[in-house]
Design a protein around this nucleic acid. Structure first.
Ligand code: SF4
Ligand code: SF4
Lengths: 138, 138
DNA sequence: TTAATTTCAGAGTAAAATATCCGAAACTAT
DNA sequence: ATAGTTTCGGATATTTTACTCTGAAATTAA
């Protein structure tokens, strides 16, 4: 089911992109996110709380409350979300499951794997989520 | 810990590469593989049995028995192993966890993700495991 | 000030992935 | 034949990941 990123991370990306489509400062409840994105309520709640704790989101309790991006979507990258949830393991992991993909013990796919990792990194930093959200609206 | 491929698949790749370093037809026991590759004995046994069932390996019981590649390592690709164990989900999966990465609902990272998937495929088919094993020996 | 609505914190459960156990069958060498 | 060594098949156990429950605290509006 999931490639590259954990479930919570995938959900976080979806949620953050959704929030980025709202006008700046508008609060969105976990309830809305769960119905629009089809993610289990308690699960997405936890993830949002986590992102809040990590200062990527801002939250507020009460009837008019919910979650919103903690800063301008122009200043948030996919990489920020991924690292907040999954850490940066994906950079060092070996495709074949050997200990670490450092420099020395070079295998036959090392170069290609390295290139792929660079591409992944590039995918995560090339656009901010403001641009992404704009493209999705169409 | 694991990127792209499942644990069993990672282990399978390691094991097959190890077998490819042996001279053609030589049998290798699960016991040897478990100690050389540091993979749980019962677990690697299961995986090898699975690969045997799927005709990628040949096996034999008894003292001189063990496992060997079912065909020449020049005719085996990483892709063969990956598809045997993990199937071909990695081709259709979405980075963000949406249902499927088809053509229509195009997101902001679609093009980059597509390119990455092509690179992954390329990594899996560009060399046969005979060449890989040769490169590893050095 | 009360009731409704929301996030928050922490524990608990369910499911999936990973790993193990066991007894049998196949084979080899003595 | 017999003992030793191996794979095989299927059940079981453990660990990790995914998901849920519950009760409390914060906020809002009537
Ligand atoms: S060089 Fe190859 S085997 Fe070594 S860690 Fe990187 S991907 Fe794995
Ligand atoms: S286009 Fe983007 S959102 Fe759609 S399936 Fe592919 S990666 Fe996922």
């Amino acid at each position: 089911m999931s490639v590259l990123f954990s479930r919570p991370c995938e959900y976080a990306l979806q949620a953050v992109l959704y929030l980025a489509q709202k006008r700046e400062g508008e609060m969105t409840s976990a309830k809305e996110l769960t119905s629009k994105l089809d993610i289990p309520y308690h699960f997405i709640s936890k993830i949002l709380q986590d992102l809040t704790y990590k200062k990527l989101l801002y939250s507020q309790t009460g009837p008019t409350g919910g979650f919103a991006l903690a800063k301008s979507p122009k200043k948030i990258l996919f990489l920020d979300i991924v690292e907040a949830i999954d850490g940066k393991d994906y950079k060092t992991n070996c495709v074949m499951g050997f200990s670490e993909c450092g420099g020395e013990k070079v295998c036959a796919v090392h170069d290609k794997w390295k290139l792929i990792k660079e591409n992944i990194h590039n995918m995560l930093v090339s656009k901010n989520i403001f641009e992404m959200a704009k493209e999705m609206n169409r």
